[in-house]
Nucleic acid binder design. Sequence first.
DNA 1: GTGAAAGCGCTAACAG
DNA 2: CTGTTAGCGCTTTCAC
Lengths: 349, 349
Amino acid sequence: MKNTSPRNGKKQHATIREVAEMAGVSQMTVSRVLNRRESVKKATRDRVDEAIRTLNYRPNLMARSLAGGKSLFIGLIFNNPSNNYLGELLVGTLHRCREAGHHLVIEDFSVTSRDKEVDALVERISGAGLDGVIVAPPVSEDEVILGKLRAAGLRTVLIAPRETPQDSVSVSIDDVAAADQITQYLIERGHKRIAFVIGATDQSSSRRRYRGFDLAMARNGLAVDDTLVMQGDYTYRSGMVAGEQFFSMDDPPTAVFASNDDMAAGVIAAAQRRGKRIPDDVSIVGFDDTAIASAMWPQLTTVRQPIAEMGYQAVNLLAKVIGGNDVSRPEKSIVLDVSIVERDTVRQR
Amino acid sequence: MKNTSPRNGKKQHATIREVAEMAGVSQMTVSRVLNRRESVKKATRDRVDEAIRTLNYRPNLMARSLAGGKSLFIGLIFNNPSNNYLGELLVGTLHRCREAGHHLVIEDFSVTSRDKEVDALVERISGAGLDGVIVAPPVSEDEVILGKLRAAGLRTVLIAPRETPQDSVSVSIDDVAAADQITQYLIERGHKRIAFVIGATDQSSSRRRYRGFDLAMARNGLAVDDTLVMQGDYTYRSGMVAGEQFFSMDDPPTAVFASNDDMAAGVIAAAQRRGKRIPDDVSIVGFDDTAIASAMWPQLTTVRQPIAEMGYQAVNLLAKVIGGNDVSRPEKSIVLDVSIVERDTVRQR
DNA sequence: GTGAAAGCGCTAACAG
DNA sequence: CTGTTAGCGCTTTCAC
């Protein structure tokens, strides 16, 4: 039988034992210098470092995880790999993972409908030996999945969960305040007939953003015209449908607030299709500031949600949660600030 | 509900040993049931299965990897998390990983410039204990990184590499043929003055796509006007700049072929900005068929590259490469077919 | 068919 | 400051 090891007989990676032998110390000492632990005499440490270098030694993470009882791998659970949100999230998540020496294992939970499948996925993940996962929306709103994940012994950190519950650690933004803020921004620029496109019904952020819009309108004594509120689902297409609706009215809105950037892009497309000029004929704002917001013309004025930063903080929280034992300290949840990014789709009236 | 803390000395997951005890067999037998189920008597197997079920046992992947000498984790190395290409790639990659029981560890190689950083990243990955990685473009073109990865003992499967070299396993498409094909498509619809936007200079696909364009033009006896060829870098912005250029000419092109969808979107924005109507005044095609192609208006006619499928196949190849020993069998490389997706940005002239 | 022993590469717990 | 002894949970030999 052939040796299945990489290149004939030649061992691929040096082990801690070889390093120890070469440095003339015990494995434990090597382990200590590796972990920057207390108390290793400088002379010894130098010899070990030397050996590590000449052997080109790299500790094996799997072994380390096994022996140490804690994994250096963390999971990221999400739903739809092909969207801008995930990309942004990965930027921050990976950044912090690299800093902290973690590795990110990603798991697509797209087939969430059937109980059987959810169970299979949860088993798959808990079998991977990770001990913590970051859960991105909209999976982070699914109590069933969340429950099973926790039942499997996985620590979880939620991104943009349903509410900001006392019993779960999470990173989020204040959707209500943010939506209120950009609505106010529109109002201050003279808009009174403002249309709104609601996000997906199964995501709580949709409701919160609508509430923020409603709040700002009410505060300014402006009525919300029911015919100017359309239900979307966070997709480009749904935004376009809503736009068609708005711009075929006799008395069309002077501004449209779509609950995310993709839908705003759809609204813009619908407007352009009807020969409307933006922002001269109609102003449009979105929400999120994902890549598409600056990859369209005119570039979209929108609410910037610090998605990458949320990923970064989530890794941080997860590390703490895994490390300590008090999982449920509510102050561990983080709410990040948003800001309005002024670009080219809003005109003073 | 109370915290299901694993820290209480309470064991979180059942182990193979507990299963063995419960079933009244040895660990080895459980292991056999888990893996090759053949050589175990049905009665025994049933008892073991029963124990597994009642204990809710899941084998620990890390331990399995360690003991078995081969990892069940595979890596995916890329460069820019926030682009549409990666999202599509993940779809297929994760799909196959799930089918095959692998887990995907992702690594961002964005900071590729400095030697020092590359070394650190390679060490990071080789330390993770993976034994194979899928390398996405444009990292898959970087011979320095590739060399270091292989020197670290990692098996690699390349996606869209520089050439399709004999000594590396890869998944790719025929960029030249694809570009030729869509150029021909434009020509057949009566276009003669066709502009071209080249992709990033550091990616070989740019050159191949240009060659395909050139070939089709030449075959049809059409001259390539130098002023109608602009250098881009695969970004939306660069496409817009090129478009501005084209549409400010006295004798503008009747069609534009941009080397990817993002740039095509930029060209379209520039056209619309100048009041040009698409496809009436000018036809535009892109390349890739990423999400943006159908999330714009009008929707983009483009070359569909089966990115998800490429990811799927890459995982497959990697599994084979890791399993067998003959890494360099050239027939292991795969070239996938492309197709033209006709949407709304091309008009017969 | 099944089991016992011996690790995989590392860290925890105690020694000294 | 450093070494020893045990494993982590699993698979690999090689017995029977």
